[in-house]
Design a protein around this nucleic acid. Structure first.
Lengths: 181, 181
DNA sequence: TTAGTTTTGTTCAAAAATCAACAAAACGAG
DNA sequence: CTCGTTTTGTTGATTTTTGAACAAAACTAA
C-alpha cells in the first residue's frame, strides 16, 4: 500500500469531477478534452498523463465506483444485510451527481448494465438454492430478478431527487430482498 | 502581464483558503504551519515556497484584499458613488468568511485598522474642502468620521450575518455618505 | 533546571504538472 | 470533394510540488 503522490490524487479528482459535471450538462460526444481540462483547471496534457482518452476516463471512473461499491459490500458482509444496504444507499447519496448523470437517459448507457452486472455478482453469494423454499427456482432468473429490482429502485430514487433518506430506502429494499432470498 | 503558472495560483488559493478557515475555528497563535498544509492539502514545504511564515501569509492575504478593493474603487470611479458602493458590498459578501473572520473579536486585530486606513485613503479624493458647505471643517476629522462610519457599518452587517442584500446596504450607505461629503 | 516532544525552517533528488509547439486526424460548411 | 478550422495525441524543456530528512528552535511537563 505505497501511498500515492497527492498531486496525482488531486489531478485525477479534478478531472473526474470535471467530466461528471460536463456529462450532466451536455452529451458525452460533444465533450472535448479541452473542455475537461478547462473545467478541471489542469493542463490538457495532464489528462493524457493519466488516461488514454475520454472513453478510457469514463471507463476508469465507472470501474472505480464499482470497486468502491464492491469494497463496501465485502466490508459490510459481517453486518446484517439491511445494514449493508444502508451503507450502499449512503454511497449513492454521497455520489449523487455521478449516479444521476450515469443513470440519466442521455447518460452513459454502459453504466446501467455494468451496475446490474455488479449487483448480480454480489447477490450470487447470498442466494441459497439448496434451501427448501427455493426448490424449482432457477439461479439466473432469481439473480436477474433481484438485480433489476435493485437497479430499478435505485434509479427511481436517484432520478426523483432522493425523496426518502438513505436509511429508509435501505430498510424498504432490505425487507423486500429478504423476502425473495 | 506575464501569466502565472496555474500551479502557483492553485497552491496559493488553497493555502489562503486554509488559513481563513482555520482562523475562523481557532486562535491564530494556535495554528501551526502543519495545520495549514494539512487543510490546504499541500506539502508543508510548499508554504515556505510562497511565504516567509504564517505572519507573512496573513499580511499578504490582507494586502491582497486591500489591493482588490482599491482596484474596485478606481475601476468604479467613473460610476456614481452609490453604484461603486454596490460593487464593494458584493465583494464583502463574496468574501464573507474572510471579512467575518478578520473583523471578529478574536480575528486579526491588524485588519480593522488597515481597512480603515484604506478607506480614508480612498475618501481623500472625494471630499471637497473648498466647497461652501464644508467651510470650517477639518479634513482629518471628516475622513475619520466617514471612515469609521463605513467600517463600523460593514462590521455590523457582516457580524450579523448580512441581514440585507448588498444593493440595499450600498444604497443606504451611499445616501448617508452623500449627505456628509 | 532537565529531558522529551513539537514545531520550525531548510535541504535534496525525484516526480508530476506546466506551457508551447507540432503533425496528424477529424470535422463542417460551402 | 476541398479548404479551413478544430481537436487530438505526443514531444521536450522548464517549473513547481513532493516526500523525506535534518538540525535548530520553541514549547511542556516533571
Amino acid at each position: 500500500m505505497s501511498k500515492v503522490d497527492r498531486r496525482i490524487l488531486k489531478s485525477q479528482e479534478a478531472i473526474k469531477k470535471a467530466i461528471i459535471e460536463l456529462m450532466s450538462e451536455k452529451n458525452f460526444d460533444d465533450i472535448t478534452i479541452q473542455d475537461i481540462s478547462d473545467r478541471a483547471n489542469v493542463n490538457r496534457g495532464t489528462i493524457y498523463l493519466h488516461y488514454q482518452d475520454k472513453y478510457d476516463l469514463l471507463d476508469k471512473l465507472i470501474e472505480e465506483h464499482i470497486n468502491e461499491m464492491r469494497g463496501i459490500c465485502t466490508w459490510a458482509c459481517e453486518m446484517d444485510w439491511s445494514d449493508a444496504t444502508v451503507v450502499l444507499f449512503e454511497y449513492f447519496e454521497r455520489n449523487y451527481l455521478f449516479f444521476s448523470t450515469m443513470l440519466a437517459s442521455k447518460g452513459a448507457p454502459s453504466f446501467r448494465s455494468r451496475f446490474l452486472e455488479f449487483l448480480i455478482e454480489e447477490f450470487k453469494d447470498e442466494v441459497n438454492l439448496t434451501d427448501e423454499k427455493n426448490r424449482g427456482l432457477n439461479e439466473d432468473v432469481m439473480l436477474r430478478f433481484m438485480g433489476t429490482a435493485y437497479v430499478g429502485t435505485v434509479e427511481w430514487w436517484i432520478m426523483n431527487g432522493m425523496p426518502h433518506p438513505p436509511h429508509v430506502m435501505a430498510n424498504q429494499v432490505g425487507i423486500l430482498l429478504e423476502r425473495i432470498v
